[in-house]
Design a binder for these strands. Structure first.
Length: 262
DNA sequence: AAGGTGTCCAACCGCGTGGTC
DNA sequence: AGACCACGCGGTTGGACACCT
């Protein structure tokens, strides 16, 4: 987990910090402060470059640095912030007291990002439910088709053994926003043999997704969308949003409302 | 038990930015 | 104005450990 100690061409030490070095750095910074990182190692008696000292202090030795597992709330916040800020790790870190940008970045790459990717790439199983979504941008009252997505139900979720909500259940759902964006929902059963749209759609949704009109399709809210699934005991219905962060944010949301680890 | 592979994370590296002279 | 310096940031790497076959 740590780098083998070595020296650069200037004779400055690289790699793992020893407890003795940590102590020197802490003693110096707590006594004199860190007014000049370049001068600091010389004055503190460390054979390190200023950059290395700064990094060690900021990420590990600084008071109030929290280490260890990220809570669900922290995960959710990171996903939310990453969705809006991108890879601005330092900005994200400022919203999570005690967490460093480096730790958040590592956590993102090792856990949040990978988990999301793995889940989305799992193979399908028989009798999968797929939900196709058409996302509408209703700004200025105009219908603007942006995309459609499909999501397979995860093998690990109970849904694989469940039947679909009835088309009447789906079609009775009212119109409202789904996380600030309107969606039109199409449900299909996919048993690898038949693919039939739920509702009154004509044609094959999978081959002609953009040719159908919208009669018979329904706009639903988050809760309205989830309700029929939850009534059937389905803990994690398919995510209707086609981007990684939203997908994982959605999954965390489902974990929280169901109080389970999915 | 041993070797191979994947995961995690501490640390390094290069670049951009802002301040000073 | 521009050269230099220090710092901060994001991307990447390296190696210990965990897990799998």
């Amino acid at each position: 987990m740590v780098r083998t100690p070595s020296c650069d061409k200037n004779g400055l030490k690289k790699g793992t910090w020893t407890p003795a070095e940590d102590k020197k750095l802490v003693d110096y910074v707590t006594t004199y402060g860190c007014w000049n990182w370049r001068q600091l190692p010389k004055n503190a008696g460390l054979s390190r470059c200023g950059k290395s000292c700064r990094l060690r202090w900021m990420n590990y030795l600084r008071p109030n640095v929290r280490r260890g597992n990220f809570s669900q709330e922290e995960d959710k916040l990171i996903l939310e912030l990453h969705h809006s800020l991108g890879n601005s790790w330092s900005t994200i870190a400022r919203q999570l007291p005690g967490r460093t940008d480096n730790e958040i970045k590592n956590h993102w790459h090792s856990s949040l990002k990978n988990r999301s990717t793995n889940l989305k790439s799992r193979p399908t199983v028989g009798n999968n439910l797929k939900i196709g979504i058409r996302k509408e941008d209703n700004i200025n009252g105009e219908l603007n088709m942006l995309d459609h997505v499909t999501h397979n139900i995860l093998e690990s979720t109970p849904i694989v053994t469940c039947s679909l909500p009835s088309s009447s259940t789906i079609s009775s759902l009212p119109h409202s926003d789904y996380w600030g964006t309107n969606f039109k929902i199409f449900g299909v059963e996919d048993d690898a043999c038949s693919r039939k749209p739920i509702g009154e759609n004509n044609g094959d949704f999978w081959t002609e997704p953009f040719l159908q009109d919208f009669e018979g399709n329904v706009n639903v809210s988050t809760d309205d969308f989830l309700k029929p699934f939850l009534e059937l005991g389905i803990l994690c219905p398919p995510c209707p949003i086609d981007d990684e962060e939203s997908f994982w944010f959605y999954r965390l949301h489902m974990e929280q409302i169901n109080e389970v680890q999915l």
